[in-house]
Amino acid sequence: MTTTTTPTTTPTPVRGWLAVLAVTLGIFSLMTSELLPVGLLTPVGTDLDVSEGTAGLMVTVPGIVAAVSAPLVTVATGRVDRRIVLAVLIALMGLANLASAFATHFAVVLAARFFVGVSVGGFWSIAGGIALRLVPEKHVTRATAVIFGGVETASVLGVPAGTFLGDLGGWRPAFAAVGVLGLVSLMGILILTPRIPARRTLGFADLPLVWKGNAGVRAGIVLTLLVITGHFLAYTFIRPILQGDGIADNMIGVLLLTFGVAGICGNFIAGALIGRWLRPTVAGIAVVLAAAMLLVAFTDTGVLTAGALMVLWGLGYGAVPVTFQTWIIDAAPDTTEAASSLYVSAFNIAIALGALLGGLAVDGIGATAAPLLGAALALLALPVVLRRRGR
């Protein structure tokens, strides 16, 4: 890494926290954008005349691109004011979603999703370590948790809310709403965030060094790939899975909102546990997710049963982001920026891979195959957890 000496003015505590909230809204908008198609595959596929498996590429494409752009954007913009970088990335996301809302061909939607992926990977990587530049040192941990709360809240609440909006007014207004939210985030970043000149520049050479020299980081990346791939293998296609069980279209959004509320509870439960029981919490997440997916596959669900399963599933997944991020920080306290860049890449690769494998399973075997394969991958995380030494 190289160091620059560009001076910067420390913002007042109040303005610093306002800047933290602006960045949090930005990352919430980005992650909601990346995962929004999960609840809207069927209407998008029907309107643009593609299969549900093909429509799953709307999740696969930005996931793959985000995995590449996370380290690439961080390195390429290493000497640029972080405020400017965040503003450009969030603006790109907003415009891409507005383009999707007016698209008449699926190819246009996929092109827009490519730019969403660029925004997600770059923004998340930079935002993860930005709290240190915005608030006093004693508040850094709390501010970082707030920023990463945007990732968690998007995963467990933003997507269900977007699905609910899509059920009410169609998929195009849902995409347009996320685009507008991105532009609102842009204004917040420009108005509330101070200049943040680069201090340390991450080089590509730092990434393999962290991977090769830290068994804890390697274990965390493997866990992320297994659990997140398993989750999205099934969750990307939750709409056709529930429809196959006879759940009415107008109830899908309600069930995903139930998932989201349970996910927020799972986040707080995990936050109370991981300080002392990090490894058992990771193992518990794998077991809960696998159980939820197996029950979805084998149970003939009515609305009440489906709601109960969404609560179980949401509790498990809501605990994932804060727990796995803590694993990475715990494993690499002195190289957090490089380790987090690898983690962001792995997380987004897993999203893309899960959507891709789920699409192949749904189109080739049937909707039930997706949760079965997802549960199998989640359970494969258990040997990794048991083999990893330390807390």
Results as ranks from 00 to 15, higher is better:
Pro7Ile: 05
Thr9Ile: 11
Leu18Gln: 10
Leu18Trp: 09
Ala19Arg: 01
Leu40Phe: 11
Thr42Ile: 11
Asp49Met: 12
Asp49Gln: 14
Glu52Val: 15
Gly56Arg: 10
Leu57Phe: 07
Val59Ser: 08
Val59Asp: 07
Thr77Asp: 03
Arg83Ile: 00
Val88Leu: 13
Ile90Asp: 09
Met93Tyr: 13
Leu95Met: 09
Asn97Arg: 08
Phe106Arg: 09
Ala111Asn: 08
Ala112Ile: 04
Val116Lys: 04
Ser119Trp: 08
Val120Cys: 05
Ser125Asn: 10
Gly129Met: 03
Lys138Trp: 09
His139Leu: 14
Val140Phe: 03
Thr144Ser: 03
Ala145Trp: 04
Phe148Ile: 04
Thr163Glu: 01
Ala174Phe: 12
Phe175Val: 06
Phe175Ile: 10
Val178Glu: 14
Gly182Val: 03
Val184Phe: 13
Met187Val: 15
Leu192Gln: 14
Arg200Asn: 15
Val217Phe: 15
Arg218Thr: 11
Val222Ser: 14
Leu226Asp: 09
Phe232His: 02
Leu233Cys: 15
Leu233Met: 15
Ile238Ser: 05
Pro240Val: 05
Ile241Ala: 15
Leu242Ile: 04
Gly244Phe: 02
Asp245Glu: 13
Asn250Ala: 14
Met251Ile: 03
Ile252Ser: 06
Val254His: 10
Leu255Thr: 06
Val261Asp: 01
Ile264Asn: 02
Ile264Cys: 02
Cys265Ser: 14
Ile269Tyr: 03
Ile269Gly: 00
Trp277Val: 09
Val282Ile: 15
Gly284Tyr: 02
Gly284Gln: 01
Gly284Ala: 00
Ala286Phe: 12
Leu294Val: 09
Leu294Tyr: 00
Ala297Phe: 00
Thr299Gln: 09
Thr301Phe: 13
Thr301Cys: 15
Val303His: 04
Val303Glu: 13
Ala306Gln: 06
Gly316Leu: 00
Gly318Arg: 06
Pro321Gln: 07
Pro333Trp: 08
Ile351His: 03
Ala355Asp: 02
Gly358Gln: 02
Gly358Met: 03
Leu360Asn: 09
Gly364Ile: 02
Gly366Cys: 01
Leu372Ser: 01
Ala375Lys: 00
Leu377His: 08
Ala378Glu: 00
Leu379Gly: 01
